[in-house]
Nucleic acid binder design. Structure first.
Length: 584
RNA sequence: GCGCUCGUAGCUUAAUGGAUAGAGCAUCUGACUACGGAUCAGAAGGUUGGGAGUUCAAGUCUCUCCGAGCGCGCCA
């Protein structure tokens, strides 16, 4: 009985739907019931206040009229009370919750409704540079982008992952010459073990200190751009050794990116000249200080004059604006994407909005197609400044992830010494990486956050290990009970106790939690939901005996609730890109 | 100078314009030979940076001031 749901499972939506007609009747027009979560009940209906204002009548009276107009809703609500200035407090009936929950749990998406219109989305994220180490700056883009990709796919959109790696430009002259000096095999080995920074530094050093090298490097750039076969071969060595290393980090990080997702800057080389041509044909191009530029409306520089987007530099070269525009064309015209997502740091906001403005003016980005900048803040050290290593340089992402796994392994060894060595290593990976990712995803992405090992690896509070532990407990009940989880999936839950009631509502809200996170491109909203789910579960678990339930019927019902909670939690963590071990 | 982002308990933070601003950590008080104590229950902690405005209702919207960060023509 597995199917894709078109309807929403969140009971608050059901309440809103049920009361919509009553509100229309009373208001004489379509009026939003304004159903919200409540501290005073399962939900509160706030719409009467607005309607009363419009009608010039008493809000409590409006609320009364709405209740009359709604008629018998006892199949959904066990109690409706008018409170305060005109709120309607709603308590949902246990029978209703039981039916809804069983239906949601029979669905392969656990009640999350599919997108009403399916889109093709291109998500631009991660984007490391060839021959440069990935550092914490890439962590956020990669982890947030990965989560957004998973969310989009989950609700049925088609997603094209775009890893826009930095594989082109003037630095490649010196990098290739350094590669030649080192010998390809030696260089490949150095790059292969991940010492990209050492390689880059050495090349830079030679470039700065050796004039002959500098001349060779400049000549090499020309060769590269003219497509010289030998030069391209050397360039490919650099790219492939680097991507091999990126893949090592991606596997460690447990994200979806593969080689198939790589669309480096070099991929757009042939599209750069057409960008200029098409802008010229569209009569948008102007010459300013020897450069070809476009002046999009509404942007000014520090003198208050129009701010240009430079399409072609005075020396005839292209720059990042050109290739970003080429990307827009490629994504809208070749890939037919209508949702262009950029998971890029907040400082690039102005640049991206200028690109969007020019693309729109040129007709390459016509509604409903649009660009979304999923901006994020910095990772800070405990001094409140950009995270740096003790020596003061950037923190290598790989080293940071390895430390996370080590720390998690230590914690497990201490708390669960009986776990076999090999399993411990796997679980340590899930917990360590999960902790890093969750700490990145669990606060509003636009803010900076402080990187804190202690806090992210704590088993208390809003952390990945806490959620993973809650999941492991849910699973362990079935081992104790000696039955398969699947065997309780046809049980219709009996909801009686307040904690069962609260847990059921929470699970049904997975639908809106996922959509809320997706619509705002804010993974932390899903994190908050999962944390609340975990705390609701532990409260239930504490107060409602499962294995020692009064009757066999109740025991099965509660086991079904445990299984459902585990499924929702695992699915939610999965959407965040975090694994949920069954034991830890 | 102009623009963007941020400012919430000691710390880390949440909150579709809705009632008494919700959590976690730390602190304090309870529950135990425990369905995994890697737990649960409770207490205390706030004039949401200041001020004004819009609204039946503002942490949320508008304006202004203060503070922090970032951006503002040929780097990406």
């Amino acid at each position: 009985m597995r199917h894709n749901r078109k309807t929403m499972s969140d009971p608050l939506h059901a309440v809103a739907e049920r009361f919509a007609q009553a509100f229309a009747t009373v208001a004489g027009d379509i009026a939003d019931p304004v159903v919200r979560p409540s501290d005073h009940a399962d939900a509160q209906i706030n719409g009467a206040l607005g309607v009363a204002k419009k009608l010039g009548s008493n809000p409590r009276q409006v609320a009364k009229d709405v209740l009359v107009a709604a008629g018998d809703v006892s199949d959904m609500c066990s109690s409706l009370e008018i409170a305060g200035p005109g709120f309607i407090n709603v308590t949902l009936s246990n029978e209703f919750l039981s039916i809804q929950l069983q239906s949601a749990m029979n669905d392969m998406h656990l009640g999350v409704h599919v997108a009403p219109t399916r889109l093709t989305a291109a998500v631009d994220y991660s984007a490391p540079n060839v021959a440069k180490e990935m550092h914490v700056g890439h962590l956020r883009s990669t982890v947030i982008g990965d989560c957004i990709v998973r969310l989009l796919e989950f609700v049925g959109h088609t997603v094209i992952r775009e890893n826009h790696i930095g594989d082109w430009g003037t630095p490649f002259g010196m990098l290739i010459e350094h590669l030649i000096d080192m010998g390809q095999d030696t260089a490949a080995q150095e790059l292969g073990v991940g010492d990209l920074d050492g390689f880059y530094r050495a090349a830079r050093n030679a470039f700065d200190s050796d004039d002959a090298f500098k001349d060779r490097a400049r000549a090499r750039v020309v060769l590269l751009q003219s497509g010289d076969a030998e030069t391209l071969h050397l360039w490919r060595t650099l790219v492939s050794e680097s991507t091999r290393y990126f893949n090592h980090v991606y596997r460690l990080l447990d994200v979806l990116l593969t080689d198939a997702d790589i669309m480096g800057e070099s991929s757009y080389n042939d599209l750069l000249a057409p960008v200029v041509e098409r802008l010229r044909e569209a009569k948008l191009l102007e010459v300013s200080d020897g450069a070809d530029v476009v002046f999009p409306a509404g942007f000014t520089n520090r003198d208050g004059h129009p701010l240009p987007l430079i399409i072609r530099k005075g020396d005839g070269g292209y720059n990042y604006a050109t290739s970003d525009l080429a990307c827009v064309i490629d994504r809208t015209e070749r890939l037919d994407a209508s949702l262009l997502i950029y998971v890029v740091g907040a400082p690039q906001a102005q640049h991206l909005s200028m690109v969007a403005a020019v693309a729109a003016q040129a007709g390459w980005l016509t509604p409903p197609a649009h660009m979304v900048h999923v901006a994020f803040g910095n990772v800070l050290g405990d001094d409140g400044k950009m995270l740096k290593s003790r020596a003061g340089d950037t923190v290598k992402l790989a080293a940071l992830l390895e430390e996370a796994v080590e720390r998690a392994a230590k914690a497990i060894a201490q708390k669960n010494p009986d776990m076999p060595e090999q399993e411990r290593a796997q679980v340590a990976h899930m917990i360590g990486i999960g902790a890093v990712k969750y700490s990145d995803l669990s606060t509003d992405r636009v803010k900076d956050y402080v990187f804190d090992w202690e806090r992210m690896l704590s088993f208390d509070g809003n952390t990945a290990p806490y959620l993973q532990y809650a999941h492991a407990r849910m699973c362990s009940i079935f081992r104790r009970a000696g039955i398969e989880r699947e065997s309780v999936r046809s049980v219709s839950p009996i909801i009686l106790e307040p904690r069962e009631h609260a847990l059921a509502i929470r699970m049904l809200q997975f639908d809106s939690a996922v959509w809320d996170a997706l619509e705002k491109y804010s993974p932390h909203r899903l994190c908050t939901y999962l944390y609340e789910l975990a705390t609701d579960f532990t409260a239930f678990y504490e107060h409602c005996p499962v294995l020692k339930a009064d009757t066999e019927e109740q025991r099965l019902s509660r086991l079904a609730l445990c299984d459902s909670a585990a499924r929702v939690l695992e699915c939610g963590l999965n959407l965040l890109g975090i694994r949920a071990p069954e034991q830890m």
